[in-house]
């Protein structure tokens, strides 16, 4: 692999994860309760535990979060 290609791949991975960290931070504080009612009032240790997964899978999380916001009665 050329060095430039590697740099592009790593930049893309870094950008993806940076967005993921931001989404995960906001999600575990303010969003998790709205997509899963079992998370209401859950302790910080649980929120911390799911944050690496939320950062890695942020597109899934974001979609579920938006769905939950659109259908508040679900």
């Amino acid at each position: 692999m050329a060095i430039e290609t590697a740099r592009i791949i790593l930049f893309a991975a870094g950008a993806y994860l940076t967005i993921g960290v931001v989404v995960a931070a906001v999600f575990v504080i303010a969003g998790v309760d709205s997509i899963d009612h079992a998370a209401k009032g859950s302790p910080w240790s649980f929120r911390l535990l799911i944050s690496p997964g939320a950062a890695a899978l942020w597109p899934v999380i974001l979609r579920r979060w938006i769905d939950a916001a659109r259908k508040p009665h679900r």
């Binding site: 799911i50 690496p52 890695a56 899978l57």
Partner: peptide
């Protein structure tokens, strides 16, 4: 292995 470890909590089972 990271993806598996990060999604090992039941929260993920239910929400994925």
């Amino acid at each position: 292995m990271f993806l598996m470890a990060a999604t090992s909590h039941d929260f993920w089972l239910r929400n994925l």
